[in-house]
């Protein structure tokens, strides 16, 4: 069964860390380089993220992501290096183009920040089962309705794609052209909209009935089949991350 999820099922220490700690890591990896805007801070965070991805055996999955980001960031680098207002110190010259130190440094800092945020999110998304993440959030007070929508969307969208597939097959078997030029595809797509929308609406209504009869609207406290995995070291990680953010703030104020 396909679900819309980037989760990579591995057994690694990173996978075993709880979702809240990973969320806090995103917070830390975003906040600390802003609080302490030196390149060194950003580089250290980057190194930690890469290490965690390697430890989680999911680094390969972020390579495509990184290459897209690098492409975008290179553009920023070039533009800022050449044209940023406040560029005064020439660094090097390519033909007639002069790259300036200020612009380049600025671009590097921004780039590192973006990469850091992306990688921190990647750690969460690649090493956490979506259902675990959502369940944890519901435990922490997220509305069960939102939790339901988040987790069911990942499964129900592929199911709807299947419905589209079935209807397309039906139309094809009745002799309708569904492949070929864009115009042909478009012509095949339009009569699809009706049945797909209708069946999705009925399905949505039926599914909300199914939820109702399973007591989804009950006002009492919900419980969870899965035990909340609480390792002592999770606490340690969370406090460590919070503490590092606080330390960064103190450092900033003191310095």
């Amino acid at each position: 069964m396909e679900t819309l999820s980037l989760y990579v099922d591995r057994d690694s220490p990173v996978h075993r860390v709880d979702p809240i700690s990973k969320l806090l890591y995103i917070l830390a990896a975003t906040a600390i380089p802003i609080i302490l805007p030196s390149l060194l801070t950003a580089a250290v965070v980057l190194a930690i993220s890469v290490a965690l991805l390697l430890l989680g055996r999911t680094f390969r999955r972020v390579i495509p992501l990184i290459s897209v980001i690098v492409f975008v960031l290179l553009t920023i680098l070039i533009i800022q290096g050449l044209f940023r207002a406040g560029n005064v110190t020439p660094l090097f010259q390519l033909g007639s183009l002069i790259f300036y130190r200020e612009g380049l440094l600025y671009a590097v800092r921004i780039s590192l920040r973006v990469i850091n945020i992306m990688l921190a999110f990647a750690i969460l998304i690649l090493t956490t089962k979506p259902s675990d993440l959502f369940e944890t959030l519901v435990r922490k007070g997220l509305s069960p309705r939102i939790g339901y929508v988040l987790s069911s969307v990942l499964q129900i969208i592929p199911q709807m794609q299947n419905t589209v597939g079935t209807i397309t097959d039906a139309q094809r078997s009745r002799g309708m052209e569904t492949e070929g030029s864009l115009a042909v595809r478009l012509r095949a797509f339009i009569p699809l909209i009706g049945p797909v929308v209708m069946s999705s609406l009925t399905q949505t209504r039926e599914r909300s009935i199914a939820l109702e009869v399973r007591g989804f609207s009950a006002k009492g406290k919900k419980s969870f089949l899965n035990e909340e995995i609480q390792e002592p070291y999770h606490r340690f990680i969370r406090w460590g991350l919070l503490l590092s953010i606080i330390l960064a703030l103190v450092w900033r104020v003191a310095a």
Binding site: S131, S151, I156, Q159, R214
Partner: peptide, 11 residues
Amino acid sequence: NPFTQVTGAKL
């Protein structure tokens, strides 16, 4: 419909 009675939230 057995399909719409599956919540979709569980794996």
